[in-house]
Design a binder for these strands. Structure first.
Length: 499
RNA sequence: GGGCUGGUAGCUCAAUGGUAGAGCAGUUGCCUUUUAAGCAAUUGGUUCCGGGUUCGAAUCCCGGCCGGCCCA
């Protein structure tokens, strides 16, 4: 460090703020030891004002200083709290000379509480006429620019708190996510579903086909996997007599990071005894329709990618998987074709498939690349090939398919659901057929549970992040996750130097 | 993992291979109903990091770090 401290620190906003803090402390006031007893959030306070009755109601609000309009002997400023912004009017002859002089030294980003009466300005904005205020936290770094906000995506994700302070759309979008999750809970509880929590650490990562994260428990000296689904645990609860259960849980999959994938994401899984996949169709339609109505205030949303309007209140299309494939390939006999013919058919559609793939994988490539993206309106795809999921019941009228649906909205898979397989012997056979040489991955304890008897049930998984993408119009999963996963980075950290 | 693309002041962005600039923010003044408030003056740069080419590099080349988009 130089032993010649710069005499002019006015260009260094951090140093200026540190100097202001030091001056306050030297004068006997430390903002970090102060607090304020608020009476209202901003939005609630604003609602208290009655037209024509200025200065009739006194409130104490608190928040972060985000706008300052200094007019010499008075200032209009705005503070931001959980509900939004509220304007404060600070007049020198009301708060007094000393307090006013101190107020002029506040910086954008500082957190303060203010007490005063509500009035309406001549431009019609309900404002607090400040009688007294207290600084309760000093911001030692400047806020991002007030008009453009923070737009560097890396900083938006790494320093989400700044994004939330200055980007109103981000605040609104992420708050909406909380309301969506809250609504789902209330919706399910109203139908007597019980919310449960099951382990994240598992001996066998089952219930889905995905690469798990691995970790180690020191005291037991055993490796654990982070769960890739909650399915097998929740079904054990059906065996245990919890007839309607759900979990909104974090799932971990050790796979790529992309616009639609975060290594940890949130999944709702619902199981209802004595129901089936048809029952789940009713459940999810009710859930999403009321969700739209209660949270968004409309059942019609704009799908950004396609420009289409998605209507949740209309009839939801039901179509068999095989019919979609036959339609896309223009081949009524597709499922009777040889593997070589299927490969040729897929390539004719512009897809590159490998001869090492199983036939159902070739067919499913057509589904996920050529069909799914076109299913914008809510669509139940029914009767999937049995190879795609070993946990569902085989269809009675077609033993090559299973009694399931895949709900697709906006070209994205939003919710798969099954008539759950409860025959322990069929279940074991399905596991073995799928696991191949890796039979050690079979969850034998789950099979034991099934042998004790699981009631017939419908079950469903809903990707909460994808649902939020859809309902908030977000472009990326990162925009609906508060702290998305990034490579450990070199974001400038807060210095600890004292000036 | 591959292709394309980006990293410049606290933030948002400029800058033909030739003196690194603007707006906001900051600092100093003026202004007691402002709405991106206004007016005047003014400070501020390891151009992500490390090499190379060149008389000269923010700019061109190579390598690295961290993002974004597309693909796998």
């Amino acid at each position: 460090m130089s032993d010649l401290p710069p005499s002019d620190i006015s260009h260094d906003q951090h140093a200026v703020r540190r100097a202001k803090l030091a001056e306050m402390r030297a004068g006997g006031f430390d903002p970090f030891r102060a607090n304020v007893a608020t009476t209202h959030f901003s939005g609630d306070a604003i609602k208290l004002h009655v037209d024509g009755q200025d200065n009739a109601v006194t409130v104490t609000v608190a928040g972060r200083l985000v706008t300052i309009r200094d007019m010499g002997k008075s200032q209009f400023v705005k503070i931001l709290d959980q509900q939004g912004q509220i304007q404060l009017y600070v007049k020198k002859d009301v708060v007094g000379d000393v307090a006013y002089a101190a107020f002029k030294k506040l910086d954008l980003g500082d957190i303060l509480g203010a007490k005063g009466t509500l009035f309406k300005t001549k431009t019609g904005e309900v404002t607090v006429r400040v009688e007294s205020y207290t600084l309760v936290a000093k911001a030692l770094h400047p806020l991002p620019e007030k008009w453009h906000g923070l737009s560097d995506p890396e900083q938006v994700y790494r320093q989400r708190y700044l994004d939330l302070i200055v980007n109103a759309e981000s605040r609104a979008r992420l708050l909406l996510r909380s309301r969506i999750v809250s609504h789902i809970r209330r919706f399910l509880e109203a139908q007597q579903f019980i919310e449960v929590e099951t382990p994240v650490l598992e001996n066998t990562a089952g219930g889905a086909a995905a690469r798990p994260f691995k970790t180690h428990h020191n005291a037991l000296d055993v490796d654990f996997f982070l769960r890739i689904a909650t399915e097998l645990r929740l079904k054990r609860l059906l065996v245990g007599g919890f007839d309607r259960v759900f979990e909104i849980g974090r799932i971990f999959r050790n796979e790529g990071v992309s616009r639609k994938h975060n290594p940890e994401f949130t999944m709702l899984e619902v199981y209802q005894a004595y129901s089936d996949h048809r029952g789940m169709m009713t459940l999810i339609k009710d859930m999403l329709t009321t969700l739209c109505r209660d949270v968004l205030g409309t059942t019609k949303i704009k799908h950004a990618a396609s420009g289409q309007e998605i209507d949740f209140a209309g009839e939801w299309r039901e179509v068999d998987y095989k019919d979609l494939i036959r339609e896309a390939t223009g081949d009524a006999e597709w499922f009777a074709r040889s593997k070589a013919e299927k490969i040729a058919g897929a390539e004719k559609l512009g897809l590159s498939v490998s001869p090492t793939w199983e036939e159902f994988e070739i067919t499913n490539e057509i589904f996920s690349k050529k069909i799914e993206p076109t299913l914008i309106q809510p669509t139940f795809v029914l009767k999937l090939p049995k190879e795609l999921c070993p946990l569902a019941k085989i269809s009675l009228d077609d033993p090559t398919t299973i009694d399931v649906f895949e709900l697709t909205i906006g070209g994205m898979e939003v919710a798969p659901a099954y008539s759950e397989q409860n025959d322990p012997d069929v279940q074991r056979a399905m596991f073995e057929a799928q696991a191949g040489e890796e039979k050690q991955n079979i969850d034998h304890d789950f099979l034991l549970a099934l042998e004790h008897g699981m009631p017939p049930a419908g079950g469903m998984g809903v990707g909460i992040d994808r649902l939020c993408i859809l309902l908030t119009g977000a472009e990326s999963i990162r925009d609906v996750i508060l702290f998305p996963q990034l490579r450990p980075g070199s974001m400038k950290t807060g210095e600890t130097d004292k000036t």
